[in-house]
Design a protein around this nucleic acid. Structure first.
Lengths: 159, 159
DNA sequence: CTCAGTGCAAAGGATTTGCATGCCG
DNA sequence: CGGCATGCAAATCCTTTGCACTGAG
């Protein structure tokens, strides 16, 4: 890693916008993909949002984007580890910046309107979670790479 | 609850097949829905499986079922709280018996082939999980009804 | 009889893909 | 120049829906 001290940044837990783009570019470059303006625009939209977005929401936030390219680029960004795709039961895929480009968090999903908010779990829970992860990984033959913890309920608007 | 001692059974953590069907029928009846042979067949297929199934898998397990009715019935069964729908990133919805008709468990998902296995979390984790649930519910204005904890990784076949 | 349930076929809709063009390296 | 990237339009494919028929109560 000759380009700089990226490792230190993750310890701070907050990522500057410039570093965000540097990091995104690096993850793409690792797969021989370019960090084009369209892809940068996607990252900007997701970085500005405080919650995961559907493709229509992304297009609304930046109308210069085209649907098929946005889908295609979100796919590339997902493979490159810049973006994560989240599914809820409303027919849409939701997109957010991937782990490492954003602080670690979980989701609270409104099962009525599909709205997704972020929340942070207590250190105690994360600790217990991690213990379980490794435990289960040992027992199942699965190579556990990640976990997701969602709370399902009804948001204040839908109550 | 005049029909019997269902409450005691859940403490054992194992549900007898007859009680499963009784319970399913009761949950449907509460919504003025019949427990028809097609719906019973769906429950049988899901009860026999040790993992969530896609609709094609369900139809393969019982070829007498028709696709549209199966989808429609799984929808009714989901609304009635007999079945749960799970989404992973492979384009298919997965179905399993709902909480209460099955022991409490979580999922470990293979992000390569979509395969889903069940696993049980430690009491310590569940306790911590529950503490977080109520905590977050207080802080967000969400009415938290449920949680889902998935581990994501690669199964032994795809490694 | 009545009305929920069934199954075929057709529609729906988010996402993907073919293909010709544009543009960065 | 060469190949990735773009965007339009058409195709895909899981899922839902319209509709006429069947069967349980």
């Amino acid at each position: 890693m000759a380009t700089g001290d990226i490792g230190e940044i993750s310890e701070i837990g907050e990522i500057q916008t410039s570093d965000l783009h540097d990091d995104a570019a690096a993850r793409l470059a690792a797969r021989d993909l370019r960090y084009t303006s369209a892809r940068r625009a996607l990252v900007d939209v997701l970085a500005a949002a405080d919650r995961p977005l559907t493709l229509p929401q992304i297009l609304a936030a930046d109308p210069t984007l085209s649907q098929s390219s946005a889908y295609r680029n979100l796919g590339e960004l997902t493979l490159a580890g810049v973006v994560s795709r989240i599914l809820v039961d409303d027919g849409f895929a939701y997109f957010e910046l991937a782990e490492g480009l954003r602080h670690h968090h979980h989701h609270i999903v409104c099962t009525t309107c599909g709205r997704i908010d972020d929340f942070t779990a207590s250190p105690a829970l994360e600790r217990e979670l991690h213990r379980t992860l490794t435990q289960v990984a040992d027992g199942t033959g699965f190579d556990v790479a990640d976990h997701r913890l969602d709370l399902l309920g009804t948001c204040s608007d839908c109550r």
